[in-house]
Design a protein around this nucleic acid. Sequence first.
DNA 1: GATCCCCTAAACAGAA
DNA 2: TTTCTGTTTAGGGGAT
Length: 804
Amino acid sequence: MSSVNTFNVCSVQIGHIGDVPFESAVGWSKNHFSAATSPWSTAIRHSRYCDDGTMDQDVDGDGAINLSTSQRPSAATTPNDSVHNEDAEQAASLEKVLKEQQQHQQLELERSWEQERDVKGNGSSSPNSDHRVQDHSSPPSTDSQKSLSATVPPATQSQTAGPHIMSSTSNLHHMQQLLQQHVLNPTQLQTLMKQHSLLQQQQHQQHQLAELGKKQIEQTMQQLQEQLQLNLIQQTHILQSTDKKKASGSLQQLALQQQQLIQQLQLMQRQYVVHQGMGMQPLMLAQGQGMNPKTLEDVFSDCHVEYNPLVDFILKITDHFYSIKVYFQQKSLLKLIMKIANRQEDWTVGEFQQGLNSREVLSPWKELNEQHLTNSKSELNDGSPGLLGVATNRPSRDEAPLEDKLERTTTPDRVHHLYGHGVCKWPGCEIICEDLQAFIKHLNTEHTLDDRSTAQARVQMQVVSQLELQLQKERDRLQAMMHHLHLSKQLSSPEPHKDGSVVTPTKMAVNTSLSQPSVSIGPMVSAVRSPVLHSPAANVAGPIRRRLNDKSALSLAGEIQRNREFYKNADVRPPFTYASLIRQSIIESPDKQLTLNEIYNWFQNTFCYFRRNAATWKNAVRHNLSLHKCFMRVENVKGAVWTVDEVEFYKRRPQRCSSGPLTQPVVGGATSKSPTLNHSPTLYGDHLSANVQFMQASLMDDNNLSFITGASSLPSRPRDSSESPVHDTHMRSPPMNGGLHIKQESMMNQEHHVTREQEQMHHIIKREIHSEYDEIEPEHPQRDTMAEDLTIASEHNDTSVLDA
DNA sequence: GATCCCCTAAACAGAA
DNA sequence: TTTCTGTTTAGGGGAT
């Protein structure tokens, strides 16, 4: 672009050449003779404009350019200096003589052109650019110029042709101006003109060569495209054939061949782009500048070297554009193959060929050819096949596909991710809004930039972050699974599927290629909603509550831990009671105490389910906190916090199963709200067994360790009287923090009807579990909970054992 | 069918 | 006055 601007400046200066002769002359020569082609290339390369528009001093320039400067270069620098200095000094007195010289020069030029026409066609017609540069890179001396004008080689003379004649009028005008300004003598001008014509001819021949190469590339691309289509048709045939065994091998070969063809096609397209970019360059510039393309072509033929950066820029953009188009076309083709392979569309070969020409496959090329034809109408005629021969079928811009129209109508302002089904989907909001406007109003009033919204947004960010991590993990796992299954399938039996869907590397590659670019949240959510591992999906459909026979609180901790991401992201009701969840939230806290609001937050952060219907479940939480004696309200300086009385919690749980032989338990001799505080000894045993078994499964699953073998024997471990009888009151004494127990009732006065031996057993079991966890993972989040759970459970078991 | 557990809803009161 | 917190009651559903 800078070159174009330079040319504009050049044009203006030519118009004022008489006013500022030498600066204009410099401008003209700078833009009409590139550094590689101008006889004064050295001077021009080192010349630059000053801020005031005049030329800066030339360090080693010749006299013709530096006449306007104060420092005149020495005559020894360039042979031309002597001539120009003499012309300048005698300019005033030799005007008449010069006019005669001009006339003579004009006649001489006309004669030389006639001679050139006569000898046209006798010389070589393929000079390369290196030769050209070599010929004109050195400044010609006066003698050489004279000899050049007198003895022009036939090969050089023959290269002057039409373009020279076409532009001779303007060049003659420039020459006359130069003669009037005494810059060049007629001989120099004549040499200059010949060189100029030579370059034009060379450029023209290069252009013809480029056209020839371009046509060859087009032909090759056409052949490759035909081969590709043939390949696809063959694949279609094979897919429709009944012999699946043969089809598998043939498909693999064809798929390999298809990939090679596509690669070759890409290569050819790239070469085509290079040729095309070079060919369309002057035209694009001419159209862009609103100038006469022919005139510009003349100029560019002289100055093409300076346009290299621009050419590179255009080529890069065009190449990138083509790469995108190639990708989309390949993707479309693969989609087509997948449709057929999956028997979604039982096509015949003819229909398949028609499908190849469908909009889905060809639309990228149509768009490409539209732009291509717009940019270079003269380069590619409308009747030409264009890229891959699809240009003729391009629709008009008004015939936009339905999908495009739908996409346009589905503007983002009509879809709000926080609004759906008439409900505000802000976490914990669920406000019903009649329409989008009402929702927007609600959004602007209720969910402003305050602490609450900020915190909720922060939570959501964490949710998204965790979700992405989980997605990546699951994706890697799936990939590993697929890889393993595919390998094992190949190793075991290369037999295709019974349903006809052959698992081949082709399909795997197709699946990969198709799935990679389309990472959307939809499959992710669906995947989250249907977990395979540790799936609590059985409890998804409604408030199915866990009973005592289900997993205990230990299982709750383990299950929450294992499915934390699932519950956090899936709108699934956790299969635990409010009481269990509240307890879990409290015991997960560092201080084993939480305010009501913190419990709310734990529910919302841990379970996606509790991000809606806030009023309902919050009421339930409060109800449970008040209802169950295991939850104790403690007031401290900060306010009220809730703690858990573990004994009371576990004492409460067996109440549910009152069937069976009723034996008054030793544990928790205090009165209960429930009139049926009957416990089955076997129940405790089952409970503990279930706990241990689940812990085994959990640890085996999570840590892949088998220490449980010892853990399972813990309840039956012989009591060691030497063990410290220190009673672990950690879980039995909720942190007081200087607060006051409001709801204590019988708790503080309650005798723990646990024998000394049982206390010892608590300590042993808990310490052992702690030590085991320390060996496994020092920071295991479940450690305390599990230890406590098992302690309680063992306590119950001991009781049952004693009772038995 | 009785009983129990759990959930949901609601009313009410006190505090912030 | 509103909102939050805590308590209590009532009723329904599921499990035993």
